[in-house]
Design a protein around this nucleic acid. Structure first.
Length: 433
RNA sequence: UGCUCAGUAGUUCAGCGGUAGAACGCUUGACUGUUAAUCAAGAUGUCGUAGGUUCGAUCCCUACCUGAGCAGCCA
């Protein structure tokens, strides 16, 4: 007799198998019991018919509590009445671990309660589906960048100075020196690109901002590709191909999870068509002014989330907004060749109100300009000597971008809030569990 | 950090100036195809914390704590 996973049940129809499972719910009548089972691979039902099993087995089935762990032995049957398509007709049960008073009942719960029990909530169907899709995005990310000739160069998490100097950093000690948790690996990826051509990092990022929105986490995961000998136009092509690849991979490999979440697959499919629409910042401002909804928009403003939502909804597609004002962007971005007031950059705004999922730019290559920008930003030039070396020794045009894993996951899964898109979210007031 | 809203049973909520309610969950029983099963019976409370008003406060007032939504910052 084989031990299998629920997800493989379809390959064992009418066979007797053994499965290690947890009980999610139970319904029983006098002579039949329905056990709702999960094993991490999927969810399905075990049917215990009194006349087919020993008295002890039927009694045990009736006494099981929610989230008890057990081995079930039985025969797999195809059954149209099961939402999963298959179920197991139980022959015998073996209790592994008892469970008493499981807090998450099959009824409604509030956000705070569920988040306090996140370690248990992960067992429920929705977190299961979201984490499957998150995993597929991670897997597809490695596949995409490896097939495109990138290598993964890890940026340090502990840094000695503020990479951008703007956002709030988590302070810690590095023996007797001050240190900060990384809020971007980008500058290190630029060093990587000068050594290996095409590189990417994929690691945790920390922002000590007092952000409290559905789009922000204190700790999140970021994918930061950086490419040498590459101008912004080519970088945008990489970005749209990457996003389309992610969405297609989820469509190809996460059908079951998408069904659980009731995500519209036709809508997702539309996001795999490249190229994505592109508008300049100037055009975006005009569009907002003429929309009637944002009459106060002025050139030079950064867009808030209502503005981002409007822009992406206008195209019903992920849309690139190009070349923002220099004043609202970081020091390392390359100035526009014919315009003083904008830099060569692009944000990718996701549709359906999910906002910015990618921020990217072509980087300043000129040593003198970059030095001047660092000073102007009020940063300590000494901290950036290594970064300036990249311009001293064979500086080349290069571009890169950063994608927020959880923002992308929230968008692709269609979840309301980014906290659902990471196993243990770190939020403004939450560091437990 | 600002604005808005909310804290009552394990959970989700209702309630009222006179000392506590429902549903689900839990316990016991019935039921051979249930899908958040159904039916019957039973147990369950520092009404967020501290002051104040009042004969009396879970209810009104003040402060604080906690959480949620929205905004800013950004991925």
């Amino acid at each position: 007799m084989k031990t299998i996973s629920i997800i493989d049940a379809k390959n064992h129809v009418d066979e007797e198998v053994k499965i290690g499972v947890w009980l999610t719910n139970k319904r029983s009548s006098g002579k039949i019991a329905f056990l709702q089972l999960r094993d991490g691979s999927a969810f399905f039902q075990g049917v215990v018919v009194k006349s087919n099993v020993s008295e002890e087995t039927f009694e045990m089935a009736k006494e099981l509590h929610q989230e008890s762990s057990l081995y079930v032995v039985g025969e797999i049957h195809e059954d149209k009445r099961s939402p999963f398509g298959y179920e197991i007709e139980v022959k015998s049960l073996e209790l592994v671990g008892e469970s008493q008073d499981y807090p998450i009942t099959p009824k409604e719960h509030g956000t705070e309660f569920l988040m306090d029990h996140r370690h248990l909530w992960l067992r429920s169907t929705k977190p299961y589906a979201v984490m499957q899709i998150r995993n597929e995005i991670i897997r597809a990310t490695y596949e995409f960048f490896n097939k495109e000739g990138f290598i993964k160069i890890d940026a340090p998490i502990l840094t000695g100075s503020a990479p951008e100097g703007t956002t709030e950093l988590f302070h810690t000690k590095y023996f007797d020196k001050d240190a900060y948790l990384s809020q971007s690996g980008q500058l290190y990826e630029e060093a990587g690109a000068m050594a290996f051509g095409k590189v990417f990092s994929f690691g945790p990022t920390f922002r000590a901002e007092k952000s409290k929105t559905r789009r922000h986490l204190i700790e999140f995961w970021m994918i930061e590709p950086e490419m040498a000998f590459m101008h912004q136009e080519q970088s945008l092509e990489v970005q749209e191909q990457y996003i389309a690849f992610l969405v297609q991979s989820v469509l190809d490999n996460c059908d079951y999870a998408l069904d659980i979440l009731e995500r519209d697959k036709e809508v997702l499919k539309s996001y795999t068509k490249t190229p994505f629409p592109k508008i300049s910042y100037d055009e975006a401002v005009e569009l907002l002014q003429n929309s009637g909804e944002f009459p106060d928009t002025k050139w030079g403003d950064d867009f808030g989330s209502p503005e981002e939502t409007y822009l992406a909804e206008h195209f019903s597609m992920p849309v690139f907004v190009l070349n923002y004002p220099k004043a609202i962007k970081p020091f390392y971005m390359k100035p526009h060749p014919t315009r003083e007031d904008v830099v060569i950059c692009a944000d990718l705004l996701a549709p359906e109100g999910y906002g910015e999922i990618i921020g990217g730019s072509e980087r300043e290559t000129d040593l003198d300009n970059l030095t001047a920008q660092i000073k102007k930003a009020g940063l300590n030039e000494k901290d950036y000597e290594w970064y300036l070396d990249l311009r001293r020794y064979g500086s080349v045009p290069h571009s890169g971008f950063g994608l927020g894993l959880e923002r992308a996951t929230t968008w692709i899964t269609g979840e309301e809030h980014i906290r659902e898109a990471i196993p243990f979210p770190r939020l403004l007031n939450r560091i437990y569990p």
